[in-house]
Write a protein that binds this DNA or RNA. Sequence first.
RNA 1: GGUCUGGUAGCUCAACUGGAUAGAGCAGCAGCCUUCUAAGCUGCCGGUUGCGGGUUCGAGUCCCGCCUGGAUCACCA
Length: 602
Amino acid sequence: MTNYPDMDIEIIIRDKVIDAIEKLYSHKADPNQVQIQNTRKDFEGDKTVVVFPFLRLSKKSPEQTGEELGNFLTGEVSEIAGFNVVKGFLNLVIDGSYWMNQLNEAAGDKQYGFSPVTDESELVMIEYSSPNTNKPLHLGHIRNNLLGFSISEIMKANGNKVVKTNIVNDRGIHICKSMYAWKTLGNGETPASSGKKGDHLVGEYYVKFDQLYKKEISELVAGGMSEDEAKDKAPSILAARDMLRKWEANDAEVRQLWETMNGWVYQGFDETYKMLGVDFDKIYYESDTYLIGRDEVIRGLDEGYFYRREDGSVWADLSGEGLDEKILLRSDGTSVYMTQDIGTAKMRFEDYDINHMIYVVGNEQNYHFQVLAILLDKLGYKWGKDLYHFSYGMVELPHGKMKSREGTVVDADDLVEGMIDVARKVSEELGKLDGYSEEEKNNIYRIVALGALKYFILKVDPRKSMLFNPEESIDFNGNTGPFIQYTYARIQSVLRKATDSGLSIPEKAPSIACNEKEIELIKTINRFPFVVKEAGDNHSPALIANYVYDLVKEFNQFYHDYSIVNETDETVRSFRLVLTRTVGQTIKNGFSLLGIEVPERM
RNA sequence: GGUCUGGUAGCUCAACUGGAUAGAGCAGCAGCCUUCUAAGCUGCCGGUUGCGGGUUCGAGUCCCGCCUGGAUCACCA
């Protein structure tokens, strides 16, 4: 009999299964053939070994093979207290003392489930958000920001150094449109003079430009011009293009206006970011990177990776990679989106010693990143083909995609504000916060509202598109952020009650004979570090969200069925208090990976 | 049209990457507060996993063909 106190039970089982196959059937089993999973709840046992893969080696029935393996394992591993075989599944019963140890591994560890970041840790740079500075953030950006922030936290928890970065698309024709509209129609309106948030104000002028442009087009078409020509000749678009040229030529007046309006937008964005609880370690601006990108393209041209057409435009021929040709510089020498991304990548790798680069960008840009990876590779960057495009699905409304022109955009600030209103209403109806100051209450409304919104978005598989119905407010009951926050607050309430009545909660749980719910809870807590790792490997906050929900559901059943503070057996009470506290800690840790706060009361 | 991607309960989502009887929430119905927070707990109802083949001990998951939604293929970003 061997004891492996600190080793994970699954590793032990895997090793011993391989031993067993060798001893019993004289075959070497491939470790990958050994499939171990948590036993489903409707069967007796804790860990299950799938025996089908070994039938070829044992040349016996699934039942008999399972029996033989079970007998071997029970004899070899002290933690295995018994087993049963159902069809081709060997269910192992793990001794209660093992679970008690597992609980005490987690108990009192504020960093439970997280791997430490060390000097040797790899550096992961994560780009997310990446707004244009001509309009405010909307629901699509919210998904991006929440995913980006959460992935960053998850990568940290997996022991990586993380640099959160943002590339701000602060130049280009779209910015000039807002600028032109403001200049001609704005009468000097400012955020201060109008009381409007800066990004919203600039966004209004972007819309006004579009209206003006459309009007001019229809007038020109009415005057006999073709639509294509009208689009090209409308006075407003000519003026915007002129501004862009002046901008590139460093025209003082245009630059001044550009800086002023962008300043308004940044102030607005900062508010929104702050409210969402997201931040960045390093911000890049397209206005700083596009020229570097242009130089890189020229270098690629000189070195023969790209070619120039007769009109002067520069292209990459990717037909060898099964893709099309891609433009890199316009015939007038100005740069496109791709150019800028090449420059930004170069700057980043000069600024940091990056091991992994992750771009959090919607799946509508899959092609773009496929091309970017190839281009960087061609330009000689060894990390080019290794960049990871975290491609997430779109947020759809009941009537389809958000269209700014059709007014179906769900504004980020409005959405958060609306959520806070709902949180306030729900909370006031329940009346549990009576006696708190307005400030305390407002903070709780904020925490709950954001918890609801963030959980709603993060619980779905990021790769899939998701539906948001603005008509129905996000739920606060069931599988939701507030339900989980509520359970956390409830746990804190129990712990307060314990200390208030003079009970001390020990660091480690005393050994007791656990009931089924307690074992289930420990098993669930025990899964957390694996879930964190899996979430990192799969880049999926949803795995964390679904896990925390499982844990909380489990706890609420336990809470309903058993007393904690009111338990009369002192040892059992101590054990349950430690268990309860550990569940609370695990909820908090899990939610921190989603960027969701937990309230002490609600 | 080429490429990529999705289709699971009335609705919104899961399913440990090929494992046991496909699970939750919402909505609907029926119960549980004199006791640690009822934003909770317990039941009931709800499914031919788009359709048809194939691969194997075993398929929602892998392969092929249809049906169907979406994205993308610009001197837009």
